[in-house]
Design a protein around this nucleic acid. Sequence first.
DNA 1: GCCAACGTTGGC
DNA 2: GCCAACGTTGGC
Length: 134
Amino acid sequence: MQYFLVKSEPFKYSWDQFNKDKRTFWDGVRNYQARNNLKEMKEGDLVLFYHSNEGKDVVGIAKVVKEFYQDPTTEDKNWVVVDLEPVQSLKKPVTLATIKADERLKDVSLVKQGRLSVMQLKAEEFDRIVELGS
DNA sequence: GCCAACGTTGGC
DNA sequence: GCCAACGTTGGC
């Protein structure tokens, strides 16, 4: 089991919208490092959903329901998507400020590499964020 | 709205 | 293959 965090700008694709849709394919990744992380995802892996720009907080948990496949929105073979389903919302969204302030979350890529849109988390980091959000 | 960080592109 | 220029992302 692996853990990830994905970012989305709420006005492009929000957690609310995701919950209405019940399922989505995660498209729009155009960065090789993020793409490589997408390819690491296996069915059943858990994914934190982060709102960038607006909110700047982790709002919920999703899970991978289909491993990577060719991005249907482009012909370019370089890019892939995965299918995600919402699992649950966090009771309290965990803000970036909270994550930055937490000793145990100092090393998460969200803090260290702000621009990366798909990143892997350690199990401890995932658990800690979920704990902070409940 | 500005600017820093960083990835990508293209000239040499 | 290096590096400067440029574009994009995202926090503030």
